[in-house]
Amino acid sequence: MKKSILIIAWITGYSCGLKAQDNSQVLLNFDGQDKASIIYWEGTLESNVDNPDTTGKNTSETVAQYGRLDILEPVVVITTQGMMRANSYASHGPAAPKFKMLVYTEEAPVGSKIQLLVGDITINTYPEGFHSVYESQTTVQYEWEELEFQFVQLVPGGMTDTTNLNKISLMFAPQTTTVDVYYFDSIVGPEFDDFTSVQILAYKKIGLKQNFPNPAKNTTIIKYAVKESGHVKLSLYNMVGQEITSIANGFHTVGDYNVVFNTEGLTEGVYFYTLSIGDFRQTKKLTVLK
Rank of each mutant, 00 (worst) to 15 (best):
3 K>A: 07
3 K>S: 10
5 I>V: 12
5 I>N: 11
8 I>N: 15
11 I>G: 12
11 I>F: 10
11 I>S: 14
13 G>S: 15
22 D>R: 07
26 V>W: 02
30 F>A: 04
31 D>V: 01
36 A>V: 08
38 I>W: 06
39 I>S: 13
41 W>F: 15
42 E>Y: 07
43 G>A: 10
44 T>D: 13
44 T>C: 02
49 V>K: 11
49 V>R: 09
50 D>L: 12
54 T>F: 00
55 T>L: 13
61 E>G: 09
63 V>Y: 03
66 Y>E: 05
67 G>E: 12
67 G>A: 05
67 G>Y: 04
70 D>G: 10
71 I>K: 10
71 I>L: 09
71 I>A: 04
89 Y>C: 04
90 A>L: 06
91 S>N: 13
91 S>Q: 10
94 P>I: 11
94 P>Q: 09
95 A>C: 02
98 K>H: 15
104 Y>I: 02
110 V>L: 08
112 S>Q: 08
113 K>M: 11
115 Q>R: 04
115 Q>K: 06
117 L>P: 01
120 D>H: 13
123 I>G: 00
129 G>H: 09
132 S>K: 00
132 S>H: 03
133 V>H: 15
136 S>G: 15
139 T>R: 11
144 W>E: 05
154 L>F: 15
154 L>M: 13
158 G>K: 07
159 M>I: 14
161 D>P: 02
164 N>K: 14
173 A>T: 10
176 T>H: 09
182 Y>D: 04
183 Y>I: 06
185 D>A: 08
188 V>F: 04
190 P>Q: 07
191 E>H: 05
192 F>I: 00
201 L>D: 14
204 K>D: 15
205 K>E: 14
207 G>Y: 10
207 G>Q: 11
207 G>R: 08
208 L>C: 01
209 K>D: 09
215 P>N: 07
215 P>G: 03
217 K>G: 06
223 K>S: 15
223 K>Y: 03
223 K>R: 14
223 K>C: 08
225 A>E: 15
225 A>P: 01
228 E>W: 12
231 H>M: 03
235 S>Y: 00
239 M>V: 14
240 V>T: 12
241 G>L: 05
244 I>W: 05
245 T>M: 07
257 Y>M: 09
259 V>R: 07
259 V>K: 12
260 V>F: 05
262 N>Y: 09
264 E>M: 11
267 T>Y: 02
268 E>W: 01
269 G>Y: 02
270 V>D: 02
271 Y>T: 02
271 Y>D: 04
271 Y>V: 08
273 Y>M: 04
273 Y>W: 09
275 L>M: 11
277 I>A: 09
278 G>C: 06
278 G>D: 03
280 F>Y: 15
283 T>F: 05
284 K>L: 05
284 K>V: 08
289 L>Q: 14
290 K>M: 01
